[in-house]
Design a protein around this nucleic acid. Structure first.
Lengths: 122, 122
DNA sequence: TCTTAAGTTCATAAGTTACGAACTACGGCA
DNA sequence: TGCCGTAGTTCGTAACTTATGAACTTAAGA
């Protein structure tokens, strides 16, 4: 098993961040990590937003988030502890993560609304 | 030639925006469009940041930006006039575009700095 | 009508992503 | 110590996406 690599904060690129967060599963993971007060293991996310994610796929998603510099992962025994690198990124790119997370919140709120409307119309 | 399609602002998704702007050529195009006070044609961007982009590739990039809802394109005779949909997006996702553009500015400023350092070191 | 300029489309090669199957690494317990 | 189960990773491959040259469309002007 190759060792975990994390980019130094100075090597984190906007392109990589945007690419990582342009996937619905990855933003969902990232959002939960950023909200959680403590590290979360990968397997916490085997089901997310009522969708089952295969283990191998999940592992790739975590790699993408890690290599984009969005999260930090540490192996502890058999499990991995993942935390968001939010504060570091905030320092380098002020407002970026906040604006993205906020936009996602706006979008999910709207989706919930149209879903309710569709249900009511029946 | 199929007609140009633009998503209504309500159908614009964060994922699509982030994906579109996670490409260096596309952000460069978008940034110039957003700064320009008037519509710009596609061919303005055949060379951008000292890089030549093939016409067919450029056409695809414009399609991605358009379908993500980031720009509006109108055919005028033989050419296309492109403008950013910045104000609409700002209304739907406040702060998003600003934060992304700002992060890109931070990053290019830093890259220019390290490039100068490397040059000075010779 | 011919030519030229601006974009688009198509075919295809190259690259990326998703996911099952097989694997590794660690911890616990007999 | 050896075996088992759990947590993740890696590999192979099929499906999808992207980049680009060549051929095409459309409009303007000579």
């Amino acid at each position: 098993m190759r060792p975990l690599t994390h980019p130094s904060i100075d090597d984190v690129s906007v392109e990589a961040i945007l690419h990582a967060l342009s996937d619905p599963v990855r933003v969902a993971i990232y959002a939960e990590l950023a909200n959680a007060g403590c590290p979360q293991t990968c397997s916490t996310f085997l089901t997310i937003r009522d969708r089952d994610i295969p283990k191998s796929t999940l592992s790739q998603h975590f790699r993408v988030l890690r290599e984009a510099g969005l999260i930090r992962s540490e192996r502890h025994g058999v499990e991995m502890r993942n935390t968001s690198r939010c504060p570091e990124i905030e320092q380098r790119f002020p407002g970026l993560i906040g604006a993205i997370m906020n936009a996602h919140r706006v979008q999910s709120a709207e989706r919930a609304k149209t879903a309710r409307r569709r249900t009511a119309a029946r």
